[in-house]
Design a binder for these strands. Structure first.
Lengths: 233, 233
DNA sequence: CGATCTCTTCAGTTTTTCTTAAGAAATTCC
DNA sequence: GGAATTTCTTAAGAAAAACTGAAGAGATCG
């Protein structure tokens, strides 16, 4: 998946570069502009998903700039400003923005805010009708609720650990599909499987202990010999 | 159909103009006032359907203003305020208001709220039963009153701090849902969570100390290992 | 300005979960 | 049937997550 593009507008090259390093590290595409005019020009023929803007620009002030930008598009704008200035004034100037930070700032905090804004933006714009993932899975006497992290077997509450829950969810969401231990490991742990251990197997056993009547003759999680595990449809 | 009239009260001309541009763009009639007194005067001989009000006005503060307005009419009021101020204070001040936003804000979001309030206003006026948000939450021996910020456990009054109250309210309003510490932080503090500390956990502990009989075996706020906290349904 | 209340941070403790490893059991193949 | 392969079981040590208590920073109120 292609990552979002972020435009940094600040008259100080060093600050632009500093921010760029952190953003690139997170995988974002980064563009720079020295002042408001340059930024406006850039926006004309480039797709940008978020703008980081220094409020104190020489040519075009923040408010006017956001006005011009918002006439065209609706990406989030995060403003930067020097702490020494009157906060109230900054608040006024930053009207039209979605968030702001005062300098000096922690780059990691800026990254967090960028992410937070993009989350919001993407949610609102790209998915107007929430095709939300189903959060209740039912099969036979087994009920899995991903919102409350609850699992019930025939009315009885069962407490699964996070890893156990994730494995069960994976299998239950993809009923019929067979997952090898390796495949499960990479899906649940989100890191490459490199050595053969039986960690996954031990977890499978724990789950069976908790949800199966007879863990020798499992009703839900079946073993597919030589291949892996599955839950039947 | 003639569109509604909206009054903007803010001491900064630029902000008034910015908001006006967006509102006009949506077809609303727009009026401006520099301060509370001017607004009151204007209201005497003009029909206004909704007010957008900056909480920090020079002459007449927000609360006094809303009180005066509400003596006469019942149009929705949306308050604006700076982020740096204590959110709780804003809460208090905006008691008479229907909604509020903190600066900086995205004008498009403001428009969305204006529309939403007007929809409600029209609906309520046609059907005078207020579908207002529930402000008393009860579960077992725990009684939470969001209007008065009071909490009682089995008849006994319990004093929670603002942060503690907000966390409890969040969990109690969404019973069954599991909230991670990160999620709680972003919801309650209204800013992105970026560093891992156990601030939320300490607050949870404080709440438990106050409302739980035995804070080792919590009856209300349960820990969901590896995920977060929840209050059961 | 000082007293008080609230929030955050930190380090140490406890609890729960995960991983490892080794032997047992089951299944397949010859 | 017997060897080889794969899966299952068990338990203990390692790791991770949550809890606790205390102290200092910060905000609030008179």
């Amino acid at each position: 998946m292609e990552k979002e593009t972020i435009l940094i507008v600040d008259d100080e090259r060093e600050i632009r570069n500093l921010i760029e390093i952190y953003l690139k590290n997170e995988g974002y595409q980064v563009l720079q502009a020295e002042d408001g005019q340059q930024a406006i020009d850039l926006l004309e023929h480039t797709d940008v998903d978020l703008i980081i803007l220094d409020i104190m620009m020489p040519t075009l002030d923040g408010l006017t700039f956001t006005l011009q930008v918002r006439e065209q598009k609706d990406m989030p704008i995060i403003m930067l400003s020097a702490k020494s200035q009157d906060l109230d004034k900054i608040h006024g100037l930053s009207t039209g923005a979605d968030d702001y930070m005062t300098k000096p700032f922690n780059p990691l905090e800026l990254i967090a805010r960028v992410k937070s804004q993009l989350r919001r933006y993407v949610r609102i714009n790209r998915a107007p009708v929430q095709p939300r993932q189903e959060n209740e899975i039912e099969l036979d006497d087994l009920l899995i609720n991903t919102a409350t992290h609850e699992v019930r077997v025939g009315g009885r509450d069962v407490r699964l650990t996070p890893t156990e829950f994730d494995i069960l969810e994976l299998l239950a969401r993809n009923r019929g599909m067979v997952f090898s231990a390796e495949h499960i490991y990479e899906k649940v742990w989100k890191e490459p499987f490199y050595r053969s251990d039986n960690t996954v197997m031990v977890h499978i056993r724990k789950i069976r202990e908790k949800i199966e009547e007879n863990s020798r003759k499992p009703k839900y999680i079946k073993t597919v010999w030589g291949v892996g595990y599955k839950i039947e449809t």
